[in-house]
Design a protein around this nucleic acid. Structure first.
Lengths: 124, 124
DNA sequence: CTGATCGTTCGAAAAATCTCGCACGAAGAT
DNA sequence: ATCTTCGTGCGAGATTTTTCGAACGATCAG
């Protein structure tokens, strides 16, 4: 099992607030982060099934390089998950605070799984 | 006393998370926000004494248009303050969470008192 | 009034970012 | 082996952002 593709990740201490905020400042990436919070580790393609592959790689790379997500290769595909512990250690409450202030797009209604590992509700 | 310059501000409900995050994603502007939290309302020039005026206007305008600050003309100069209540109502805890994760530059030593509380009276 | 200072706007130039087609190597299926 | 699918890197083009000088009106001191 030699990992074919190796991904570079910043150390926890290297994660910088401006880079993280910039990564989160795009609705596309912010929705990706929300999905990661809700679903845990996901196949990269789930983050943007209708995006061109090179575009998707661009956004996932940016999320990875800013320290928001951890990426690992599994066979052909790559699995992506939020660096929850690292982010929580470095910027406590940030992700939750941001997501609370950014309503999920209503057009996404296909997640009917019992996903209540995330805490509490969103108002309005 | 007709206000010479009038500034457009987004309604509280119009303040959008992506725009706010983008505005905060630049160290320059993030430091401005920190100063606003610490000092309350300040003369715009205090936010960047060494910046060209047009550059300063650019950044303060961006902060204003994203809903982060309130700007008012007073004589020749313009006074800027954080929209604390509006931001807190819309994105509870966001500003504090972000600033907590972004250490102040040690370069700046003219900081008077230690920053322990921020929700206090700081009026001029 | 004159002169100085301030913030804004315009314009242009530079830098960064975003999008996406294409070719390539790696991995799985047959 | 071949064929297909996947992610990545490259390159180009488009869009956005950043910077800052110059000109202008407004304000204040004299």
């Amino acid at each position: 099992m030699t990992p074919a593709r190796v991904y570079q990740h910043p150390e926890t201490s290297e994660i910088a607030m401006p880079k993280v905020l910039f990564a989160l400042s795009e609705p596309l990436r912010l929705n990706m982060v929300r999905m990661l919070v809700e679903r845990g580790e996901v196949d990269s393609i789930e983050l943007g099934p209708e995006l061109p592959r090179s575009t998707l790689t661009h956004h996932t790379s940016l999320l990875r390089e800013s320290g928001i997500v951890f990426v690992r290769a599994e066979g052909r595909k790559c699995m992506i998950r939020l660096r929850e512990d690292d982010l929580e250690a470095r910027f406590p409450g940030l992700i939750q605070t941001v997501l609370n202030g950014y309503p999920a797009p209503v057009d996404d209604v296909d997640d009917v799984d019992d996903v209540d590992d995330v805490d509490d509700e969103e108002g309005a």
